[in-house]
Design a protein around this nucleic acid. Structure first.
Lengths: 236, 236
DNA sequence: TAACCAGTGTTGTATGATAACCATGTAAGT
DNA sequence: ACTTACATGGTTATCATACAACACTGGTTA
């Protein structure tokens, strides 16, 4: 019965294997910033793959800002990593204070987003938020569907700010937070919690509709405070 | 004199051009989640490049979580974009409102970071901030060195919050903002501006040292307001 | 000394071929 | 009717090779 194992091992592409292998060399300091990588041919030989695969791996690392390359010269380890891409390591998130930090960051963005949304929301934005709230009302509390619609509501709030990067950052961070919550399995849901959560959302929506930035801010803060305690996070 | 435009448009590698082109299709909704991309051959033909280049572009998009592909089936737009990494397209940033959005996001984070720093800063944090300010004082205004130390100061403020992701996000966003400013070449520096900027920084530092969160917040807001006008950005 | 130039190595791109895999349809067998 | 096996076409994954563009080096020449 090695079938399953085979299927697991077969998963990633060769290029990702090569990429993470080189990435590890950099992370562990065996390749320092400014160092020149071996030539593509050498890499292909040492890894036992074609030069094409090596190039795909390099293209990936280049897009992540970890290395840069120039025609005729070679590929080099970049001075400042994470130049173009922001990554959050899932394993690191398992530590409590890391999760708390991310949750705090999310809170800052959400609260300010709510205030901006109250000032700038269009009628279309309001409509989208209301629809999201309705679908949320229909979903059973704690289900995957429920979490999805919850995220969707917050997304519509972010969208109402008119700031495209607000949407991008917030969805990214929220997604990470949600993943971490799911992984920890920290959610015992009773029915009345659904009503509470929905009520918090309604308060946010009302404030945004009224154009009251301060109230929207406060409502969002209260909501996040409630959400934090719901996942067993001690607030400062 | 379209040299600059050419240099922007001409991403050194064809693969990056193809990647951002596909990426744009997804962002603009012409390719919806779940949709199947054209085959590699078709893409190669429509873009006028080799299939190899298309594969490198796809490898990049796959690593960014925007698409997923399976042997024998094809490549598809991912349901939840930005699953693993957060990217900001440099070309997209050239548009004015995009830059403004990013600047706004940076402002939100910086202002709240200043408040948190005022509450939580340790003596070591204060020491680092003071040193950063000193090196900044020594650098000539507008030079690359000056910009670097400026970033460094803001980084120490972020670090003082004790929130690791605050540092990560802020440096990422600030770096993007700085790149964009450098690219637009928007900086005419006179000597008195240096004094003004330094004064703003000192005010922030003083507030954080005093532990006055509100004042730190306001000082940072004033500083960013000044910085915005200095790069010719109209504030709302 | 300085400019030119050829040679070599490296990356960037193109092209063709092969293997692995998926989806679908069809025929054989139960 | 239902299942199994096989055939077929299409797609990705990988390999191999070739050529173009560019960088560096060293020698030659003015």
């Amino acid at each position: 019965m090695t079938l399953k194992l085979d299927k697991v091992n077969r998963g990633p592409h060769l290029s990702t294997l090569v990429a993470s292998s080189i990435s590890r060399e950099i992370a562990q300091g065996r390749l320092k910033p400014g160092d020149q990588l071996p030539t593509e041919q050498q890499l292909a030989q040492t890894f036992g793959v074609s030069r094409n695969v090596v190039r795909e791996a390099i293209a990936r690392l280049r897009s992540e800002g970890r290395i840069w390359s120039q025609q005729g010269r070679g590929a080099f380890v970049a001075d400042q990593p994470n130049a173009t891409v922001l990554t959050i390591d899932f394993d690191a998130l398992q530590q409590a204070n890391a999760f708390q930090s991310l949750f705090e960051l999310r809170g800052i963005l959400e609260v300010q987003a709510a205030a901006l949304a109250a000032r700038r929301r269009s009628d279309g934005d309001l409509q989208a938020m209301k629809e999201a709230l309705e679908t949320m009302r229909a979903a059973p509390y704690g289900s995957v569907m429920w979490l999805k619609t919850d995220l969707e509501f917050h997304k519509t709030v972010a969208a109402a700010t008119g700031n495209i990067y607000m949407v991008q950052f917030l969805t990214f961070v929220s997604e990470k937070v949600r993943e971490s919550i799911l992984a920890s399995g920290n959610q015992q849901g009773s029915e009345d919690l659904a009503a509470v959560t929905l009520g918090e959302h309604e308060r946010i929506l009302d404030a945004i509709e009224a154009g009251d930035a301060d109230e929207a801010q406060e409502a969002m803060r209260a909501h996040l405070h409630g959400a934090a305690s719901r996942v067993g996070l001690a607030e400062e």
